[in-house]
Design a protein around this nucleic acid. Sequence first.
DNA 1: CCAAACATCCAAAGCGCTTTGATAGATCAC
DNA 2: GTGATCTATCAAAGCGCTTTGGATGTTTGG
Lengths: 343, 343
Amino acid sequence: MNLKELSAHLGLSQTTVSRALNGYPEVSEETRKRVMQAADQFNYRPNTRAKALATGRAMAIGHVIPLSTQHEMMNPIFGDFISGAGEIYSQSGYDMVLSLVADEDQSRAYHEMAAKRNVDGIVLHAPEMRDRRITMLQEIGLPFAVHGRATDIATPYSWLDVNNKSAFQRATDFLLDLGHRRIALVNGQESMDFAFRRRRGYEAALAARGITPDPGLMFAGEMTEVYGYDSVRRTQALDDPPTAYLVSSIIAAFGVRRAVEEAGLVMGRDVSIITHDDDLSYLRNGAEVPVFTATRSSVREAGRRLAKLLISQIENPGTAPLTELLEAELTVGRSTGPSPNRT
Amino acid sequence: MNLKELSAHLGLSQTTVSRALNGYPEVSEETRKRVMQAADQFNYRPNTRAKALATGRAMAIGHVIPLSTQHEMMNPIFGDFISGAGEIYSQSGYDMVLSLVADEDQSRAYHEMAAKRNVDGIVLHAPEMRDRRITMLQEIGLPFAVHGRATDIATPYSWLDVNNKSAFQRATDFLLDLGHRRIALVNGQESMDFAFRRRRGYEAALAARGITPDPGLMFAGEMTEVYGYDSVRRTQALDDPPTAYLVSSIIAAFGVRRAVEEAGLVMGRDVSIITHDDDLSYLRNGAEVPVFTATRSSVREAGRRLAKLLISQIENPGTAPLTELLEAELTVGRSTGPSPNRT
DNA sequence: CCAAACATCCAAAGCGCTTTGATAGATCAC
DNA sequence: GTGATCTATCAAAGCGCTTTGGATGTTTGG
């Protein structure tokens, strides 16, 4: 059933039917009601393709996912982010189109999206430190918003980010207050902007107390369970092992806990752990009392907000870029306690 | 730059340019080359919307994700599945559109997708035992393929599934061969078809050795870390605790391991664990020697294959439904060993 | 040398919608 | 009673592409 058939059946012009359905005022209430009813009865939905062509709006938002084997962006947090964003999209009538693209095709992919005009805007994921994709998208002129930020990009753009620096600074402070002095950082890949900022926060807190960061206690890598495990194994073999671990992901934190317990140490007594917690739906941090003390920020909520931000950007073209900085909350669980080395 | 402008610039008709770009034979090689070059130079890409309208093909495939809070389908395996499917889609020129839909809107969502004509086919996720969505899609007449199967649906449809029954039957057999007699099943939600089949496999293996399944050893629930942990805590409190655990997800297996180790037991000696392993990119089962003995089947590969299957279905309408049954491999790791209770 | 076959190209219709510009008829002001 | 204003409707153009059905010139066969 299409517009033509529907209007023929009603004995009205396509114009009138279209107007009636789209809520234009120049249609009598009576006919509008009649049209609505018929549309309902025949389960009429305007053909998206035709509508998009006529209006110039695709009513879709693109997410380009780098499909590299190196850093699997299709990672655990992605599902939750998408889930949050998708919620808003469906509320606002947008579709979400996902493109998985090999790293070397990134540039081509964005240009293609712009030229093919099948999305009204783009969400950029996992920005690196001075991500070339941002300037690229600025040149292309398609609305976009970044989940995260990229240090060293001068021209303004829309983004939403967690205050990673402050979160890790506060977490480090918290451990320092508990008397810990040897604090290991089990960070994500530091070419990623968020990881870089977290390290800055960690270092800033140490510096404020006159402690020089020990390179032997700082790790950067893919945030897997095994990575967390290995980091502990290596540091516990040191002469002066750390009494606390600051971890960038709850998955790695699982590995950290495993290694700690395997070494016969008790978490929260012999060794303290703070992890960043993206509040993933399938990896809840304990029930009533959190297992881990954590810097928590829901990535699903981030998805929701970034979606809103981008939609507003799309629907009000010409406005200045929007930005939003979320503060993570520091929630205390059972994984932290005073340093055993406290004098 | 659109077709009109491009052809004007070339001094050719739109027809010829279109034909040249789409590889039709009635164009001289010389002009084709000229057209190709100009298209390249101006970075011309046909407008998807217009093309879709003209051809009647959207060149997109829809994934409808139930957005229930009850069972979070946006779960860890989803990212990997999508990643595999997306790989094939981009190779074949399809876009992937994701719709997150609340459970109560499922029916409406499918009808809408069909009426709006913005996808050429649909992938159905996480089928329940006699999933109503399948018959619904059959009635609608939009091509679709199911990741998994639904018991008790008579009319044929396209699906791709892991042989869950055989996998869990073999795993149970493997444990029985090692002398285990008290084997716990830590299963997923058994309204899900895959979980139901796994239990059938488990029960079949026990029955073959004349063992009656003990309801006190069988669990069904959301496959979280804490769920795995709790299952062990409960069973180890029994008079006659199990010596082996058969687990439906590697995330739950982490929890099982944690509880086992916390109880002072050694995995692979005092207690054996076999888990199903979806071979997730960010949750690798150990390095050289797998940590867990596992029934393994890559969900990413499943995504790839199901995508191919659906595309073939779309491009050859009228052919019989396609089905594919993947066998999981049973890989031996360090989590299994002879039963300590063996006489 | 002429009709048939072929190789290239083009004008125009059509995909299903929105939107512009017009047209009737009703209502109003005076 | 008449021109102006509103109201409710419609015909037709246009979005950017593909595709049908010619048209034009060139070869080819006999």
